[in-house]
Amino acid sequence: MSAPATTADAGHHEPSKFHFYIQIAMILSVITGVEVVLVYLPIAKWFVVTALCTLSAVKFMFVIFFFMHLRWDKVFCTILFFIGLVLAGGTMWALLHIFGADASKPLSAAMLETAHLAIA
């Protein structure tokens, strides 16, 4: 597995991904542009939210798999990162739901005021 490269010619470098990276960056810019335009379009809200989330996720994946080389690295790196990502996402999801529940609604200012007035 550690067999040294038999093709030990001086020119054996990582193949350049220069143009590839430029293409990725262009795709990312275009997606960002689409996102900004999207929020101003008169389309159904649920559709825009879904589209925005999807587009962001696509951008996210492009960066981690290409710019961050996950695509070419050992799959363990991907697993490692996704452990954190999934736990963070899950925690966020749970927190938003807990705070979204009826039982968790904060006291409105009006209710607070009556609470204080009643003492007097």
Binding site: G90, T91, A94, H97, I98, A101, D102, A103, S104
Partner: peptide, 18 residues
């Protein structure tokens, strides 16, 4: 272990489902 934290908060009024 990451999915049970609120059992320290059963008395804080989380709502029945949570």
């Amino acid at each position: 272990g990451f999915g049970v934290w609120s059992h320290h908060m059963f008395t804080t009024g989380l709502g029945n489902v949570a």
